[in-house]
């Protein structure tokens, strides 16, 4: 299931890249010769490569991903390499959950759900910054994420979220003298009160 998902997303990504290059090359072709030169030098070969990649994706699907991709974990590969070197079978008994990039299998539906939730947090945070400013969005985002996503306790979430926000405010505003975006709504409201 996982490999078919990877295969599918592979082709989707190729189509996305192809679309990007086609649009950019199309736009560039309307520019004066000097301005369109580099985008065309890069964009046209990229379109050819995307088409080649689509053909490779189709070929891969036909042959079956299992035949041509090495799906073994790093640990299994390591065991194989060392077995060859020492001339006897070596089996490293380390749980897969401890290896980088290897985790318990997550169902595709669960994975998509988690991805949507995380993208929701991210987009909400960015929207919050633009509308209400950094210093309103940061504590809300930190506390909400720690409490509801990382499943930390209320006290821990509030303490860490607010504490970190205060620390960051001190570091950026006082120490680095960086003025961060204050947010359009916040500016408007402060404007109403003469702030």
């Amino acid at each position: 299931m996982k490999s078919s998902l990877v295969k599918y997303s592979n082709s989707v990504m190729t189509v996305v890249m192809l679309a990007i290059f086609v649009v950019l090359v199309g736009l560039a072709s309307g520019y004066p010769p000097g301005a369109r030169f580099m985008p065309l030098v890069v964009g046209i070969p990229a379109i050819v490569l995307c088409l080649l990649q689509l053909a490779l994706d189709a070929r891969e699907r036909r042959r079956g991903a299992a035949e041509i991709s090495d799906t073994r974990s790093e640990l299994e590969k390591a065991g194989e390499k060392v077995s060859r070197m020492v001339g006897r079978r070596v089996d490293f008994r380390i749980s897969h959950e401890f290896m980088p990039g290897v985790g318990p299998e997550i169902s595709p539906q669960e994975m998509v759900r988690r991805e949507l939730v995380l993208w929701g947090y991210f987009l909400g945070f960015i929207a919050g910054i633009i509308v209400f400013g950094f210093w309103a969005a940061i504590p809300v985002f930190l506390v909400a994420f720690l409490r509801f996503q990382a499943k930390a306790g209320w006290l821990f979430s509030l303490g860490l979220g607010i504490g970190a926000s205060v620390l960051m405010s001190f570091v950026f505003e006082r120490l680095f003298r960086v003025v961060l975006h204050t947010g359009f709504v916040t500016d408007y409201v402060l404007g109403l009160f003469g702030g």
Binding site: A28, A46, Q53
Partner: peptide, 30 residues
Amino acid sequence: GNIFKGIIVGFYGMILATVGMDPQTGTARF
């Protein structure tokens, strides 16, 4: 094992590097 993907991504970076004012002609690209 698939060099095309890497080159496509590299070209994607290169074409995005052309966004903005072209120093040769003064055209605002993309």
